[in-house]
Design a protein around this nucleic acid. Structure first.
Lengths: 232, 232
DNA sequence: CAGTCGGCTTGATATTAATCAGGTCAGTTC
DNA sequence: GAACTGACCTGATTAATATCAAGCCGACTG
């Protein structure tokens, strides 16, 4: 890793509560890698060699079983993934692939565990990080078990609109096929769901979507703070 | 809390890596409560007042939305619940009710957070605890999204049989209605699924089940270490 | 012992989502 | 500009699951 990159990485929010010496110890053995789109970054079942921190790009977390595959989440810049596997020194439960070209900081697992053991601030930050990740998955599980496909889509649209500045209009951040997997439905079903949302004044044209009547959509979606977070 | 109880609580595995002084600080303001079956212990959406540690009995974690309700997990002695909400000082995402009569240690949230801030060993233990909880939910999400109801049942039977000593025969630890919710299916569907498993030599009579041909059941279930854990 | 209550099962039906099989259309290639 | 490609949509069909409505049975109760 180049010294210039190291300086940039040192300033990551991820390292905020960590002593400088421990940050450097981790960065010394780290890699800053660029990956093209569609590349698989980690495969589930394999030992947790690296903690990954996304610097640029988006990463899809997914998993397959028999002939099925599902997307478990999509992460973006600033987020780390498979922290829990690294901490506990257990195999990954999820696979990851780059959705776009991505720049990723890879911290060797034993360096992370060493810093975790040596640095109480880091340990607390990781506890908070895994706690947040935990709550994210619980939300996702509730979303999956308590809602129909159409409701999941409606809520995703509302949430994403808020993240884009509540303009009632945005472009999809990834292919609709990925969105379908993200929402746990077949691509065809997503397509039909969009058609069904026309009745609620949601207009999809190509890669962009217009929510013309937010209230109507909210009435269908019925967002809940214990599933979708508080800012919706 | 009686001094005798305090002594018992001090020895909990939960406190293993915590300094004695910090353990006592938490226990000083704690309650050791008995609850009858079916009582609701916490309700989702409410602020996280207490960290709960189960001493005796089993507790169902569940959540409702609109007119639906689903079980997210069942916890037993030694396990704590809603640790993440307490650590982050956020509202509970799940509700909890006692499935059986239960004895529960309730640690005030701010005492837990104070110990977390003061005691590095406790912080590390909580990090490991949330990491394990995280992996548990990821497993559950994969179980839900990648398997059919029948497959989930088959795998639950195998896992539970192992937990009961691999005798190929055990009694259900709770009502079938709860098992159905646990597996994410309607009670009627569970009933039919049991009927379908007769073809694999699984015999259900009242509250007990016999797995006469484990291999046949495994062939249907196809357990995976990244969903069901390693000991299956 | 008859009554009844809850837990469970069974059958019929409705709903939801997945699958299969074309189509459409815009962008790219030759 | 014709052919091709990939992403997406549409329709028809099938599979999975939920829902509704009885019915069964064992346990308790008067």
């Amino acid at each position: 890793m180049r010294t210039q990159d190291i300086d940039e990485m040192r300033r990551l929010p991820f390292f905020r509560d960590v002593e400088a010496g421990n940050v450097d110890a981790m960065l010394r053995s780290a890699f800053l890698q660029r990956f093209p789109a569609h590349v698989e970054l980690v495969r589930d079942g394999e030992p947790a060699d690296f903690l990954h921190v996304i610097i640029e790009g988006t990463v899809e977390m997914f998993s397959g079983h028999r002939d099925r595959e599902t997307t478990l989440g999509v992460s973006g810049p600033g987020e780390s993934f498979i922290l829990a596997a690294v901490l506990l020194d257990r195999p990954y439960l999820q696979s990851a692939r780059a959705l776009s070209a991505a720049r990723i900081l890879m911290l060797p697992a034993d360096a992370v565990r060493q810093a975790f053991a040596a640095d109480a601030g880091f340990a607390r930050a990781l506890a908070a990080g895994t706690a947040q990740a935990y709550r994210g998955v619980v939300r996702e599980l509730k979303n999956q078990k308590l809602r129909s496909g159409l409701e999941r889509l409606a809520n995703w649209l509302l949430t994403h609109d808020v993240e884009c500045g509540s303009r009632g209009r945005f472009d999809f951040p990834f292919d609709k096929k990925v969105l379908a997997a993200r929402l746990g439905m077949a691509p065809e079903v997503l397509s039909r769901s969009f058609a069904a949302l026309a009745a609620y004044d949601v207009v999809v044209r190509g890669p962009s979507v217009c929510i013309n009547d937010v209230d109507a959509l909210r009435k269908l979606a019925r967002p809940s703070p214990t599933i979708d977070g508080t800012n919706i």
